[in-house]
Amino acid sequence: MSDELLTHEEDGILVMTINRPEAKNAMTKAASEAIAAALDRLDAEDHLRVGILTGAGGTFCSGMDLKGFLRGESPSVPGRGFGGLTEKKPAKPLIAAVEGYALAGGLELMIACDLVVASVSAKFGIPEAKRGLAAAAGGLMVLPDLIPHKVAMELALTGEFITAQRAYELGMINRITEGSALDGAMELARAINANGPLAVRISKQIMEESRGWPRDKRYEEQAKLLPKVFMSEDAREGSLAFAEKRSPNWKGR
Rank of each mutant, 00 (worst) to 15 (best):
L115S: 03
V117K: 02
E99I: 00
L94C: 04
P90S: 10
V120R: 15
P144T: 00
K130Q: 14
A122G: 03
V116E: 03
R80C: 01
K89I: 00
L143D: 13
E99V: 02
A97E: 06
S121K: 15
L109S: 02
A134F: 09
L115C: 02
A104C: 15
F124S: 05
A129D: 01
P144R: 10
A102E: 07
A118S: 14
V120I: 03
G83L: 07
E99R: 11
S121R: 15
E108D: 13
I111S: 01
G139I: 00
A122H: 07
G138F: 11
G79M: 03
F124H: 03
R80Q: 10
A104L: 12
R131T: 01
G84Y: 11
R80F: 03
K92D: 05
G83A: 01
R80N: 01
P93H: 02
L115E: 06
G132S: 08
L109R: 08
V98L: 08
L143H: 13
A96P: 12
A136P: 04
V117L: 06
A134N: 06
G139A: 04
A97Y: 04
K88L: 09
A136R: 14
L133A: 08
F124P: 11
V120M: 12
G138Y: 15
F82V: 08
D145Q: 15
R131W: 11
Y101I: 00
L94Y: 05
L140V: 07
K89V: 06
V117M: 06
A104G: 05
E108F: 05
G79P: 10
E99Q: 14
A97R: 10
C113F: 09
L85Q: 11
G132H: 12
K89D: 02
A97S: 12
G83F: 14
E87M: 12
M110G: 01
G83R: 15
S119R: 14
A112V: 00
G106S: 05
L85N: 14
V120G: 04
M141Y: 11
S119Y: 05
L109K: 14
K130S: 09
E128M: 12
A134R: 15
L107A: 01
V98C: 06
D114A: 01
G125T: 04
S121F: 08
Y101L: 09
G138A: 13
G132P: 11
D145V: 02
K88P: 01
D114M: 03
T86L: 11
R131Q: 11
A129I: 10
D114P: 09
G100S: 04
L133M: 14
L140R: 12
A112I: 04
E128N: 15
V120S: 12
A129V: 06
P144Y: 09
L140G: 02
D114Q: 05
E87G: 02
L103H: 03
G105P: 06
L140Q: 09
V120E: 15
K92C: 00
S121Q: 10
R131L: 14
V116G: 09
M110E: 10
E108G: 09
A91H: 11
P90N: 02
A96Q: 12
G81T: 02
A129K: 15
L115Y: 15
A118G: 06
L140P: 05
A137D: 12
A118R: 08
L107Y: 11
A129S: 04
V120C: 11
K123Y: 02
G79S: 03
C113V: 00
P127M: 08
L143I: 05
